[in-house]
Write a protein that binds this DNA or RNA. Sequence first.
DNA 1: ATCTATTAAGGATATTTTTCTTTAAAAACT
DNA 2: AGTTTTTAAAGAAAAATATCCTTAATAGAT
Lengths: 220, 220
Amino acid sequence: METVQETISKKLQPVPEPSVRRMPQYLHLVRSMREKGEVYVSAPAIARVLNLDPTQVVKDMAYTGVTGKTRVGFSTEELQFALEEFLGYNRKHEAFLVGAGFLGSALIQYQGFREAGMKIVAAFDTDKRKFGTDIQGVPVFSLEKFHDLASRLHISIGIITTPAGAAQPVADLMVAWGIKAIWNFAPVALRVPEQIIVQDTHIYANLAVIINKLGQQKNG
Amino acid sequence: METVQETISKKLQPVPEPSVRRMPQYLHLVRSMREKGEVYVSAPAIARVLNLDPTQVVKDMAYTGVTGKTRVGFSTEELQFALEEFLGYNRKHEAFLVGAGFLGSALIQYQGFREAGMKIVAAFDTDKRKFGTDIQGVPVFSLEKFHDLASRLHISIGIITTPAGAAQPVADLMVAWGIKAIWNFAPVALRVPEQIIVQDTHIYANLAVIINKLGQQKNG
DNA sequence: ATCTATTAAGGATATTTTTCTTTAAAAACT
DNA sequence: AGTTTTTAAAGAAAAATATCCTTAATAGAT
């Protein structure tokens, strides 16, 4: 049995980001296994399906607080709850999205996020034609209304899907009105105070990796 | 002046993936600097804008084959061409996209990719209502027509934007019909032969990182 | 013309993350 | 009941990456 102190210190030491990124995959797998009626799943079994090292799976599971049974594996039920708790699927984070273009609209319509702990409650744009419309029930406002709404609601996440040039001013706006985390899809490096969490999803970076590897294959 | 041998060996040793991922950012920055009329840019200047370590910038530039002038920096013109060459913006890679839902449509409409060396030439879906329609000029076909078209055209990249359950069969189809690289947006780990390049863009992984950090901040 | 400040480049160090190795435990089988 | 096999867990090693440090060069200032 570990002491309360140990439990707390374990929570305080941050989980490695690569591990965090694997968690949704584990959850997805565990859910589908439970649907098939599986009660236990071993780390090696998970590792085979997800192409990972078995010991890495065990370590990742330890971060969620779940511990397995020797020769049996992990309880799928316990795992699912632990992963959902870890990923914050129970808490609700509300988000504002700025830039209701193709990508922004797709994210709003993507749903899924809602069950993953984030709800996009409003979108903002500078295109007059979009004001007053809604995307799958999410209203689109003028960017000028941002401070109004942000100061009234408690929004923790801001999503930026604007063109590159608009991203920094939008980020400044978000910071000014109390947003704690920014999910940035624009291909720029945002400058924000250090306590603000920034997560970049640079779509071009992924494309660059693909094309680079394709070119390499041709040579080698 | 370096020998041809050296140039070749430099190309053969693979560029670290994190460096490749930074290249599009450099290109974007260099382009905007050239538009402003800047002829030279120093590595420390780039590092300041992109929040990077100056020496890292220098090292990344070396991968593109560009070398700077002491006390002056890099020629923006030379840099732009080198980066575009490195990123394959001159070659044309044609792509098929499977899963013409919200995300798939957004990617097709995103344009930008075309100038980044990839052109989405056709989309596929299983929804009958979408057959024969087109998205921004890109036709949507029945998935059954995939092998027909893939065998006639020379497609190097396959994009998967299907629901999780459909991703693996689609990947198998792509591999069977000669696609060399798969850009996977579905939240699953694909199993493909090792010579096939797979690039995952797991949107939930990024969300997981954000929510994890938000939760951590609350504790710490 | 000389000096100073700035910069690129190369090597060394440190950190992070993954993989490997060992140990211990417990379930299933004989 | 004892043995074997499978597994989790903890620690050590290895690999990859980023950061730091030193050196050399050169443009601009004095």
